[in-house]
């Protein structure tokens, strides 16, 4: 049995339960799989689900796995809808594919990038991940504009938003490229940063396009 079909079924069962439904009949009816019964039997044979009186319950391992799938799906939806401004149809279709391929590291990065959103674009809760729990104690988005950093902060460059090509080239010439660590030296009257042993003065407009995280 393909992993993807299993995961789809797990997701369906989890979301139905979230909505307060746990009958097997409803699940088999709503499934988009060609042979839903076959998939469900596979779940049972793998000890992922059990049925009693027509009601489904998931094993704790299956529960955890389903939660993660839903988390990936809803994070992907948020990313596609809020950051990339895609149409709702595209959002659903693409997110449906993403949920099967995102690794846990990538998922964490997306979650952090989005600022650990509590709900997806459709208003459903996004299951919390380990990064969200960490963020609750630190309460800081991972990526922010260089201009938002405090004086003296040591930060590493995550990406530089597309400014003029020439500016990007000149920044590169000074060694200001993603991955490098820099220090915010002063903000006024001009922005001054220190990269290694190089001191560079730049417009606030350029500094705003440099996205950094705490080193």
């Amino acid at each position: 049995m393909e992993n993807e079909r299993i995961e789809e079924m797990l997701e369906l069962l989890w979301t139905l339960k979230e909505a307060g439904q746990d009958s097997l009949e409803a699940a088999l009816e709503k499934s988009e799989d060609e042979a839903p019964k076959e998939v469900f039997d596979a779940l049972v044979s793998q000890d992922l689900a059990t049925v009693r009186d027509g009601k489904v319950s998931l094993s704790s391992a299956a529960e955890k796995r389903a939660r993660e799938i839903v988390r990936r799906c809803r994070l992907a939806e948020t990313l596609l809808a809020q950051v990339l401004d895609l149409e709702d149809r595209d959002v659903r279709d693409t997110a449906c594919k993403f949920e099967h391929v995102l690794s846990s590291r990538v998922t964490e990065s997306i979650c952090t990038f989005l600022g650990h959103p509590p709900v997806c674009p459709h208003g459903k809760p996004i299951p919390r991940g380990p990064c969200c729990l960490r963020a609750e104690t630190q309460m800081r988005p991972l990526v922010s504009r260089l201009t938002d950093m405090d004086l003296g902060a040591e930060v590493s460059i995550v990406f530089i938003a597309p400014v003029q090509h020439e500016t990007l080239d000149r920044l590169g010439g000074f060694g200001v490229v993603p991955g490098r660590t820099l220090r915010v030296h002063q903000k006024r009257p001009s922005f001054v940063i220190q990269v290694g042993e190089t001191t560079v003065a730049l417009d606030e407009e350029i500094a705003r396009e440099i996205f950094v995280k705490n080193a």
Binding site: V163, Q164, E166, T167, R170, L171, F174, S190, V192, T198, T199, V200, A201, L202, D203, E205, I206
Partner: peptide, 10 residues
């Protein structure tokens, strides 16, 4: 106009 981007020597 160009962006202001200048190396500051020691």
């Amino acid at each position: 106009s160009s962006d202001f981007l200048l190396e500051i020597p020691p």
